[in-house]
Design a protein around this nucleic acid. Structure first.
Lengths: 146, 146
DNA sequence: GGCTACCCTCAAGTAAACTTGAAGTGAGGA
DNA sequence: TCCTCACTTCAAGTTTACTTGAGGGTAGCC
């Protein structure tokens, strides 16, 4: 179709680097058609998909979680508004919990460090299992536990 | 001093693994004395310092940012309540901005994906530079820009 | 003195999310 | 036809924040 986008156009319009787009495809988050000469062509709908990926990341979701959520989307046709709506409802809950957790930290920070008490027994900040669960090796994506 | 803690005691009381404590020391976030036999001994005050590190991480700060903030703390004496208070005031601002940014994403997510519009021109989610700045190579610590 | 639990250093591994670079292919204009 | 730019794949590198493991020393109790 004349409306299909090259990877460069996608990058320009989505603000995501071409290398990231290839990476997303490798991870099964987006799909592409190929030209005779093996170049990627993206449907318009993919632009929206990429935007949703970025939004989900801002919410604190990993690419793997996004991939899993995308599996609920229709395979053949482009997702409708209602399809996206279901996703956003689920993620909105995630976001709300994240915001609440951060607000709790903020209150602890103000009430506990701020006053200089930092009592080991009473202070919520001194109960790390409560705030930051061990998450195994590797970089910690900053995700306040739900 | 009889009150000094071994690394194992520190780990048990702070909830942070010994390997992480050694790592924090290597990065200049905490200090230790050594016994004749080259084993680490921590002052009581270090326990508070470790707790503050964890709190700061929960707020979304990197260890490097924590290290920088710690440089404002007194070198010889243990930090007082007032010292910590200055830190927490600065970080509280950081937290507030982070929470606000997340709330903006939440509202965009609800109003923009939720309704199914996702108009490229109007939707804030489609302006990634606004939400997620490029941060160079490497893992993205999830940090909503301030 | 001996035992065991704990401590030491240093190198390498791990995870996520990409980026960078090398080596080569394809598309469109002068 | 040539040139150049954009595209291809694949391997390796990057960052943060650690963990794991090997090989060896220490603290303190009996």
């Amino acid at each position: 179709m004349a409306n299909d986008l090259t990877i460069g156009e996608m990058a320009a319009r989505s603000g995501v680097a071409t290398s990231a787009l290839r990476f997303y495809e490798e991870r099964g988050l987006i799909a592409s058609m190929r030209t005779e000469g093996n170049q990627r062509r993206y449907a318009q709908a993919t632009l929206r998909r990429v935007a949703v990926i970025r939004a989900a990341q801002a919410v604190g979701l990993s690419l793997e979680e996004v991939r899993a959520a995308f599996q609920a989307l229709p395979d053949g046709r482009a997702p409708t508004g209602r399809d996206w709506e279901r996703l956003s409802r689920a993620w909105r809950g995630h976001l709300d919990r994240r915001i609440q957790a951060l607000e709790r930290v903020r209150d602890d920070l103000t009430g506990c460090i701020g006053c200089g008490c930092l009592s080991l027994e009473r202070c919520a900040l001194f109960n790390p299992g409560d705030q930051l669960a061990a998450q195994g090796a590797g970089a910690r994506i900053l995700r306040v536990p739900e």
